[in-house]
Amino acid sequence: MGIIVVKPGVLATIQDLGRYGYQNQGVVVGGSMDQTAARIANWLVGNDESEALLELTLAGTELRMEREAWIAIAGGDMEPITGQGEKVPQWRPVRVDAGTTIRFGRSVNGCRAYVALAGGIDGEMRLGSRSTYLRGGIGGYDGRALRAGDRIEARNEPAKFAVSRLAESQSGSLRFPLWHAGGFAVAHSDVAVIRWMPGAHYDWLSEEGQSAFGDGTFRIGRQSDRMGYRLEGEGRLGQHVRKGELLSEPVTIGTIQLPPDGNPIILMADRQTTGGYPRIGHVATVDLPVLAQLKPGDRLQLQRVTSMEAEKLLIEAEREMTMLGKAIELKLNG
């Protein structure tokens, strides 16, 4: 069951839910940036949520199906179309005929799209994960980003689908059901609201610095990638932060560091395991998928919550995800 990468686009990698258990050795966690979309995409084709899938970034990917297969596309909306110009429906299982080409355009909402393949994508398993660790050169597809000509295979026999029931609708080389999970797509907004809680060094900021940070609107900087997002705001936070030396301490996804230049960095999937900059805050885990869908130039507004609230929000979101997972399972297996 092969998918040929005709064009990789800006950046396409194989990811799963991350590489855990080796952070004490300096090995980054990695994994899909938007784990909500990644998990749902896998569920939609009957996979376990931990299967590897493709993470496409911003624009320009083109894939060709060597054989007929069930796929699901979720996450950022790159308005995928087939070579014949039919829209490929997203957030639902889609059966694609052999020989079909799928072209992803420039993202109109979000930054990263996930493509799951029934049976899971077979990537190199290293240190317990198939995620591509670009800097370490391991996992996924030879530890590197996908290139034109790469062939991606399914790992398992795909789950048996009730094709007649799922393929309610047809458009050219595509068959798909009318239901979808698009309600879980990150809503488009001019300014994304990202909830955060203060970190250990929040009080290193003067009062002025705290209000410039907490009430500020920021832009995602150009030098933002899977390792971290740079926030650019009007307030120069560097002037309002106490100077001091810190011992390197562990950090985690969503940690907001403040380097001397005064532009905060939010650590993302490919973050280092430890860091020596002041930790002024942490993004609530529940909002990481929203953040992962922001691209350079997008704006965000920070909204302060307590860590107790962040925890409650996460538990609530996970409850909804569990219900969605069950609903999809029922639809697939009826």
Binding site: Y20, G21, Y22, Q23, N24, L247, S248, E249, V251, I315
Partner: peptide, 17 residues
Amino acid sequence: IECVPAFASVAVHYSPI
């Protein structure tokens, strides 16, 4: 999930769920 030691501290990463 795992713990990560540093100079004078250890982080314990866990799954709240």
